[in-house]
């Protein structure tokens, strides 16, 4: 396989300049899991016929509680899980699920996981984490080119100067820095779409916005399409263009971010919003239970 098969960073840059959007589409995705308890076998419908499209340069938030199926969707989009039916389409064409086609798909669609403490290998240096995807997806590149791309990636995620981080190992970095490395690693193959599954929920609160802002900035610069999976309605609203609300494997409400949060239609969305902490309502709960007692 030669490097020319892959669109190089420059080539995709050109494509962006020409305004070629591209899209990542989930079409009628279904995922059933077989549950066994003793001799009984039952079906869990984790994801029920879900369709949506992530366009280049846009962020879609998938919100819902644990067990609602949002991570299963992420895993299907990342090809870590095969759908029971339905498919994933990239730029309108069915995506490959094995061999070269899968490799090509993976260079376009990458994932950022929730736990930066578990998703980086403690044995390897930061530069190794970034070199490897570059080498795998661009085998034609020379040593010097790989090294310069690694430095460029670290600078893009604001780990500067890059030389300070190259030889460090994950345990020497803070959670926020580690998540930045994880983002750099997702960008390394030249990905156009990022699936971020709760990318900041394990981080300290004061650095969460920094990491989200970085993702937003990278997205604008490179016209990435981002699927932001979260249970946090406030960041979903501010960080994305569109929100999909999931409940038990179904999308129960979807729409422009502000619309869904400020003018929810579905009863479940209202329940989620009602449950979110809101400092404006301080004392309200106390007064309510006091009246009830």
């Amino acid at each position: 396989m030669s490097a020319t098969i892959m669109p190089s960073a420059d080539a995709t840059g050109e494509a962006r300049a020409q305004g070629q959007g591209g899209s990542l589409e989930a079409r009628n995705l279904v995922k059933d899991f077989r549950l066994r308890s003793g001799l009984k076998v039952s079906m869990l419908h984790a994801v029920k016929d879900i369709s949506f499209t992530v366009e280049a340069g846009r962020t879609i938030a998938l919100v819902g509680e644990s067990g609602s199926g949002k991570s299963t969707i992420a895993r299907m989009l990342a090809k870590l899980e095969a759908p029971s039916s339905g498919g994933v389409f990239i730029d309108g064409a069915p995506s490959g699920s094995r061999g070269r086609a899968l490799e090509r798909y993976r260079s376009e669609v990458q994932m950022v996981f929730q736990d930066p403490f578990a998703s980086l290998n403690p044995f390897h240096s930061i530069s190794h984490h970034l070199e490897r995807p570059i080498r795998l997806h661009h085998p034609g590149l020379g040593r010097a080119e790989v090294a310069s791309r690694v430095e460029e990636l670290l600078e893009r995620v604001q780990l500067e100067p890059a030389t300070r981080y190259l030889e460090r190992r994950p345990h020497e970095l803070s959670g926020g820095q580690r998540q930045r490395v994880a983002i750099a690693r997702a960008l390394a193959p030249g990905a156009r779409f990022i699936i971020a599954d709760e990318p900041v929920s394990m981080l300290d609160v004061s650095i969460r916005l920094g990491v989200l802002n970085l993702l937003a900035e990278l997205q604008r610069e490179a016209q990435l399409g981002v699927l932001y999976i979260t249970h946090d309605l406030a960041t979903a609203r501010h960080f994305s263009d569109e929100i999909l609300v999931m409940y038990r494997g179904d999308i129960v409400e979807r729409g422009p971010a502000d619309e869904v949060i400020l003018n929810p239609q579905h009863e479940y969305t209202m329940r989620l919003l009602e449950a979110a902490a809101d400092p404006e309502r301080h004392g309200a709960l106390r007064d309510e239970v006091r009246r009830a007692e």
Binding site: L209, N213, A216, A234, I261, D278
Partner: peptide, 22 residues
């Protein structure tokens, strides 16, 4: 103040959140 500003407002305006200006 910094801690408070780390939590974007659910229903209020976008405030200093970068994406709005972006």
């Amino acid at each position: 103040k910094r801690l408070l500003s780390s939590f974007p407002s659910l229903r209020g305006d976008r405030g200093g959140f970068l994406r709005g200006t972006g």
